[in-house]
Design a binder for these strands. Sequence first.
DNA 1: GTAGTTGGTATACTCTGTGATACTGATTAC
DNA 2: GTAATCAGTATCACAGAGTATACCAACTAC
Lengths: 115, 115
Amino acid sequence: MKQATLVRNQAEEVKALQDTIYVIGGKWKLPIINSICNGNKRFREIERSIPGITTRMLSRELKEMEMNKLIKRTVYPDSPVLVEYESTPYCKTFGNIILAMIEWGKEHKKYIQEN
Amino acid sequence: MKQATLVRNQAEEVKALQDTIYVIGGKWKLPIINSICNGNKRFREIERSIPGITTRMLSRELKEMEMNKLIKRTVYPDSPVLVEYESTPYCKTFGNIILAMIEWGKEHKKYIQEN
DNA sequence: GTAGTTGGTATACTCTGTGATACTGATTAC
DNA sequence: GTAATCAGTATCACAGAGTATACCAACTAC
């Protein structure tokens, strides 16, 4: 009985984990979410805040994330045109994951430097 | 002054985030770590516990993770030969990330089902 | 004797995420 | 008049992550 419950939970959890990886997988989604949640709004501003990203990648990911309601894109058609990206509440649900990963990265760096 | 500190921390955090993504990126590393941390020891056992993974992928990732000291591989040369994988303390440092991701996956599923 | 398990390796292939480079039209700045 | 910024788009190309399938030798179970 106990065994059955255990196995079942494990299966459920692997699937949950795989779902999450599917959604935020890849090199750029989390850094972009992080950047926008940190208050970066403009395209070039976000671009500059993420080392190594190319215009193309940022453009593609932003589009996809807008479609998936992770971010909101607003155009102010004054002259010159102004575009702003904002995080949605849904986007903020990744907060814990991002924090945990930043934490790990920092610890890892310490660890590397000590050896 | 405050601005400078803020910007600097942001830059540091993006890099930490990117480092982490570099280490655990890809489709399989976290599910494998999770499986082993859950007590799965044998090759086929781990394989069965991760939906969709192929023998080849598991084999490749396990090798890499052994090289990076994430797991320990032990061979018991009795007949028949027995191989066991174990997580190292280092491997367990991913615990928080994995938990956060499982949590998100579960919430996401609920959310999807309600809509 | 036949089917199944274990711990993998071998080969061949696909595909797509990612990178590099260049360019646009509008505007501002010197 | 030249350079820079803004918000991107357009092409081209590639490595390598991931898939599919078959196979191995040793052993167990029926």
